[in-house]
Every structure is written in structure tokens, then in C-alpha cells.
Amino acid sequence: MKKTVLEIEVRYFAGMRERAGRDSEVVETAAGTPAELYAELRARHGFALEQAHLRVAVNDAFAKWETPLSPGDSVVYIPPVAGG
């Protein structure tokens, strides 16, 4: 069965922004979850961090890695934070 292709907006911050060379991008993907999408983006941009070192936000709220993605969702991968 053919997987549905979704348009997802991905925004990048800090080291991931620099590595990707952009603040954001709209990706067409067959990934159904933030975890599957990260595997694709990691291969494309060469992100060093493993998923276990990140958190993920969907539509500006912390989300689980296995949350199903919907068309037009906005995803942010959150590298280890360093405020304070």
C-alpha cells in the first residue's frame, strides 16, 4: 500500500539551524511520525545528534516521538538546551 505523502514545516534552531543552513523548510514526506521524519532529515542534513538526545515539538507543544503527523503540522527538533 502506498504511504500518504504529507507536507510538514520543519523549523531549526541553534546548531541544527547552522547545520541545515536554513531556519525552516517545508518537506514532502512519507514519514508518519516525528521519529521517522527525523531519520530522513538526519540523513539529508547530516545532523550529529541521535534522536535519544533530542526532544520534539509539534505545533509549538512538546510531543511524543510516535505522535502521528498531519498535513501542515509544524515540527521542531529540540537539541539539548543550555539556558541560564
Partner: peptide
């Protein structure tokens, strides 16, 4: 705040280098 709020810090060093500070241990 230090472990939960999505804020990142880049250090610029006097020798000219610069790095985003990572504490992967905390995040994981």
C-alpha cells in the same frame, strides 16, 4: 529552566572559535 526551557547558548572564544553548548547528558 536549565533543563526544560528551549534556549540555546553559543560561546564565542577569545581564540576566535565558537560553539553551541551541549549538555546531551541532561537532555537524554
Amino acid at each position: 529552566l536549565k533543563v526544560r526551557v528551549p534556549i540555546w547558548k553559543k560561546e564565542y572564544y577569545t581564540d576566535g572559535g565558537a560553539e553551541w553548548v551541549l549538555c546531551a547528558h541532561c537532555s537524554a
